[in-house]
Design a binder for these strands. Structure first.
Length: 598
RNA sequence: GGGAUUGUAGUUCAACUGGUUAGAGCACCGCCCUGUCACGGCGGAAGUUGCGGGUUCGAAUCCCGUCAAUCCCGCCA
């Protein structure tokens, strides 16, 4: 029976005989005395063996190597004064190994070094192939333990303080239109029919409200068959919540307290409340995006009214066509950013054109309010216009002003990207900050020009503001996103609980009565039997943990993640299956490998 | 679907402008070492330079194709 975890042995145990289990993190053999660092997920402790004091264990210690699994029975001793190690939590003591039992040896060369003290970065492909070894290492072990602490704190808060109950919802469910591509599974019992894996428990949690489970939560796995990114995996986890009889204000308040509780529990930090709020419009105006990183300034400035009558054609045309002119001020940008990078061929120009911009105008602010730019702009600005530009941007000598002039979405997208790229490059991001904020008052719908129809910005069950319900196409939604340091870590909304209003929304997005009934009839019917007003929110657990851990990919918060090709290199999934399995499912593949032509 | 980066010993990296036998740290194996803690010393083994083709007297290096990992665009209510 283990008496302590390795990392937990302290001076208080001096004199005690203890039983420890773990992996050999490192072995230091002095020919006579041998030191072993014994490691488990809590840390390491120094085990000592020598032929005089521990004759029984010494021959075993000689044969032990890195990553062997051993059992140690020994006496905890105070280290000699000159051998104390203040770098280790267990550095005041060591364990004299009366007995060492070899439980499992390493038979093959390790694909990479596991030791806590190894600082080399290992290729991610290799880490994922031998994930079980990677998870032994300090970084990943800590990340998974942090993830556990976050979930634990959330459960304590929601269950113990707020009276939520966890309900599991189906993984085998129904494919729905709108939203991401579904993962689908064939039904053996019902040939030619298909389940879908849930993109989120959305409809079920609303049904649970109708059932009277007025405070529901779930640590819910969600599936979306879309291409991967550093912060997107095909399966991911939401901390999913739904509540009845609460206003938006009350839901936001509860979630602020939840997040504060989590951050306090895992970081020991008290976050200031209430969290700042931006409307969607403010966020787009000031940052050009709906999930702004407010750890640094460089807020966008609208100069449409000032420059629409300038002689510079690019500016005047943009406004004449209904577009806007905005500026991204870059403090100290004159020295940091060369003309070559802004002009065609440059990296910043490329960044802008990828966002849809056709050019990237600039002004360099010199001493005494002098401005330096291409002639076509300089010659066509009046002194008043120049003064107004400097006044609104509050630009100082040395600052660079980057201009976007086009339709509003393009300008915002362009300047948002440049703002992020430049802030990172100029080290304007305060990495110690945790800036949480709400974005509220999203529009209900967005026009999809390709499909010539309105699409729900959040999802089609989102409730409009009552005063906007007259014309839904321009209505604001009672929807909210929670943003942490420029990442959307969660979002939610008040829902519609009246069949009539829900039907109006379906109509607006071009979903016919028939379609609506076949896809969501069960929900609409449920609302006929006494549905409470309700709303909810889901937090992206992987992203939240990523940010708390200081990682740059959610793969580093997931025990067994997929590669960018959505493969598991550890198990080699996905893979072919037996013909027999396909036959049972009455499924055949239409896939034919591409034949190369010469 | 598209753009970019990377791929050399178990591993992390190096190898000039295409030029001798592709090197080093760590790991591994052997010997030595009484207090180390990323212990130290001596020695050893270890390579289809991702894979396939091409150019060349000669390719890790140049070209074409391909595979894999990563980042990004499209996509992700």
């Amino acid at each position: 029976m283990r008496s302590y975890y390795c990392g937990d042995v302290r001076s208080a145990q001096i004199g005690e005989t203890v039983t420890l289990y773990g992996w050999v993190d490192r072995r230091r053999d002095h020919g006579f005395v041998i030191f072993l660092d014994l490691r488990d997920r809590t840390g390491t402790v120094q085990v000592v063996s020598d032929p005089d004091r521990t004759p029984k264990s010494h021959p075993v210690a000689e044969g032990v190597r890195n990553e062997y699994v051993i059992k140690v029975v020994g006496r905890v001793s105070k280290r000699p004064d000159e051998s104390l190690n203040p770098k280790l939590a267990t550095g005041e003591i060591e364990v004299y190994a009366e007995e060492i039992e070899l439980l499992s040896a390493v038979r093959k060369q390790l694909p990479f070094q596991v030791s806590l003290s190894d600082t080399e970065t290992v290729k991610e492909e290799l880490r994922m192939k031998y994930r079980y070894l990677d998870l032994r290492r300090d970084r990943m072990s800590k990340n998974l333990q942090l993830r556990h602490s976050v979930v634990k704190a959330a459960r304590r808060f929601l269950e113990d303080d707020e009276n939520f109950i966890e309900v599991e919802t189906p993984i085998l469910t129904k494919s729905t239109p709108e939203g991401a591509r579904d993962y689908i599974l064939p039904s053996r019992v019902n040939p030619s029919e298909w389940y879908a894996l849930p993109q989120s428990p959305q409809l079920f949690k609303q049904l649970l409200m109708v059932s009277g489970f007025d405070r529901y939560y779930q640590v819910a796995r969600c599936f979306r068959d879309e291409d991967l990114r550093a912060d997107r995996q095909p399966e991911f986890t939401q901390l999913d919540m739904e509540m009845s009889f609460l206003s938006q204000e009350e839901i936001l308040d509860l979630n602020e307290r939840l997040l504060c509780h989590i951050v306090k529990a895992v970081k020991g930090v008290d976050l200031p409340r209430p969290f700042p709020r931006l409307t969607y419009k403010e966020a787009m105006d000031r940052y050009g995006c709906d999930k702004p990183d407010t750890r640094y300034g460089m807020e966008l400035v609208d100069l449409s009214d000032v420059l629409q009558n300038s002689g510079f054609k690019v500016f005047t045309d943009a406004v004449a066509r209904g577009g806007i002119i905005k500026v991204l001020p870059v403090p100290g940008g004159n020295d940091a950013i060369s003309n070559v990078r802004i002009k065609p061929g440059g990296d910043l120009f490329k960044e802008a054109s990828e966002a849809g911009a056709r050019g990237l105008a600039y002004i360099r602010v010199r001493e005494n309010g002098e401005i330096d730019t291409i002639g076509a702009i300089k010659d066509n600005l009046t002194e008043d216009q120049k003064a107004e530009i400097l006044k609104r941007t509050q630009a100082k000598a040395g600052d660079l002003l980057l201009f976007g002039a086009a339709d509003a979405p393009t300008v915002n997208k362009t300047l948002d990207r440049l703002r992020q790229v430049i802030a990172r490059e100029l080290k304007l991001v305060d990495e110690t900050k945790m800036n949480l904020l709400w974005v509220v008052e999203f529009p209900m719908f967005e026009w999809n020009a390709d499909e010539k129809r309105f699409e729900a910005l959040h999802h089609p069950f989102t409730r409009p503001y009552n005063e906007d319900a007259g014309d839904l196409t321009t209505a604001r939604a009672q929807a909210y996103d929670i943003v942490l340091n420029g990442f959307e870590i969660g979002g939610g909304s008040l829902r519609i609980h009246e069949p009539e209003l829900q039907a109006k929304v379906f109509e607006t997005i071009g979903l016919s009565d028939e379609e609506a009934n076949s896809k969501f009839g069960f929900l609409l019917e449920a609302f006929e039997y006494g549905a409470p007003p309700h709303g909810g929110l889901a937090l992206g657990l992987d992203r939240l943990v990523m940010l708390l851990a200081g990682e740059e990919s959610i793969r580093d918060t997931i025990a067994f993640p997929k590669t960018q090709q959505a493969r598991c290199v550890l198990t080699s999934a996905p893979s072919g299956v037996d013909e027999k399995q396909l036959k049972e499912l009455q499924v055949a593949s239409t896939y034919r490998p591409k034949v190369k032509e010469d």
